[in-house]
Amino acid sequence: MATVKFKYKGEEKEVDISKIKKVWRVGKMISFTYDEGGGKTGRGAVSEKDAPKELLQMLEKQ
C-alpha cells in the first residue's frame, strides 16, 4: 500500500493511505485527516505535486 510523507509542526511523518479518512483541497495543497490509533485523529497536508496518485484519486472520488 502507498504511504504519504509530510511534515506536521516541524516533524517528519508518514502515514499509510488506508488510514486516511477525509481528503480536501486547500489552494495547491491537499489536506487530510487520518486515524492515529487509540481513538485519535491526526492531520496532515502535502503539496499537490508531492501527493501520491492514490491520495489524488481519493480526492476525485469525493
Results as ranks from 00 to 15, higher is better:
residue 54 E to H: 09
residue 46 V to I: 04
residue 59 L to H: 03
residue 37 G to C: 15
residue 35 D to L: 10
residue 18 S to T: 07
residue 28 K to Y: 09
residue 31 S to F: 07
residue 36 E to R: 06
residue 35 D to W: 12
residue 53 K to T: 08
residue 33 T to L: 10
residue 25 R to Q: 15
residue 33 T to D: 14
residue 4 V to T: 01
residue 46 V to S: 11
residue 61 K to F: 04
residue 54 E to F: 12
residue 36 E to C: 08
residue 61 K to S: 14
residue 51 A to L: 07
residue 1 M to C: 11
residue 25 R to H: 06
residue 21 K to M: 14
residue 13 K to A: 03
residue 57 Q to F: 12
residue 13 K to Q: 10
residue 53 K to M: 12
residue 40 K to Q: 11
residue 13 K to T: 07
residue 43 R to G: 05
residue 21 K to H: 15
residue 28 K to W: 03
residue 32 F to P: 00
residue 17 I to F: 06
residue 47 S to C: 09
residue 6 F to I: 05
residue 6 F to P: 00
residue 55 L to D: 00
residue 1 M to D: 11
residue 56 L to W: 09
residue 37 G to R: 07
residue 16 D to G: 06
residue 14 E to V: 06
residue 50 D to G: 06
residue 2 A to Y: 04
residue 26 V to G: 04
residue 10 G to D: 14
residue 34 Y to P: 00
residue 52 P to N: 11
residue 1 M to Q: 10
residue 58 M to S: 03
residue 38 G to L: 10
residue 23 V to D: 00
residue 36 E to F: 05
residue 7 K to M: 06
residue 55 L to C: 03
residue 23 V to S: 07
residue 6 F to E: 00
residue 2 A to L: 10
residue 3 T to H: 03
residue 27 G to T: 08
residue 23 V to E: 01
residue 11 E to S: 08
residue 21 K to W: 12
residue 62 Q to H: 13
residue 51 A to N: 02
residue 18 S to R: 12
residue 9 K to D: 10
residue 62 Q to V: 03
residue 59 L to D: 02
residue 50 D to M: 08
residue 25 R to Y: 08
residue 35 D to T: 05
residue 50 D to R: 08
residue 15 V to S: 02
residue 7 K to G: 10
residue 2 A to S: 07
residue 51 A to T: 12
residue 19 K to A: 12
residue 41 T to H: 15
residue 25 R to S: 14
residue 48 E to S: 04
residue 16 D to R: 09
residue 20 I to R: 00
residue 15 V to G: 01
residue 23 V to T: 06
residue 59 L to V: 11
residue 40 K to L: 13
residue 7 K to T: 12
residue 44 G to T: 02
residue 18 S to W: 12
residue 13 K to E: 02
residue 2 A to M: 15
residue 29 M to I: 08
residue 59 L to W: 04
residue 40 K to E: 13
residue 11 E to I: 07
residue 40 K to D: 10
residue 15 V to Y: 01
residue 57 Q to N: 12
residue 39 G to A: 11
residue 9 K to T: 02
residue 39 G to N: 08
residue 37 G to E: 12
residue 11 E to P: 01
residue 8 Y to A: 11
residue 54 E to D: 10
residue 48 E to D: 05
residue 50 D to L: 15
residue 39 G to Q: 04
residue 47 S to K: 06
residue 15 V to I: 07
residue 52 P to M: 05
residue 36 E to S: 02
residue 26 V to T: 15
residue 60 E to S: 04
residue 7 K to S: 09
residue 24 W to P: 00
residue 41 T to D: 14
residue 10 G to F: 03
residue 6 F to D: 01
residue 17 I to D: 01
residue 62 Q to D: 15
residue 58 M to I: 10
residue 23 V to Q: 02
residue 51 A to I: 05
residue 9 K to A: 13
residue 4 V to N: 00
residue 6 F to S: 02
residue 10 G to L: 02
residue 43 R to D: 15
residue 33 T to S: 10
residue 22 K to V: 08
residue 6 F to K: 00
residue 19 K to I: 11
residue 35 D to Q: 04
residue 13 K to S: 02
residue 62 Q to I: 06
residue 57 Q to D: 09
residue 59 L to N: 02
residue 53 K to P: 07
residue 13 K to M: 14
residue 36 E to N: 14
residue 41 T to Q: 11
residue 9 K to P: 01
residue 7 K to E: 15
residue 31 S to T: 13
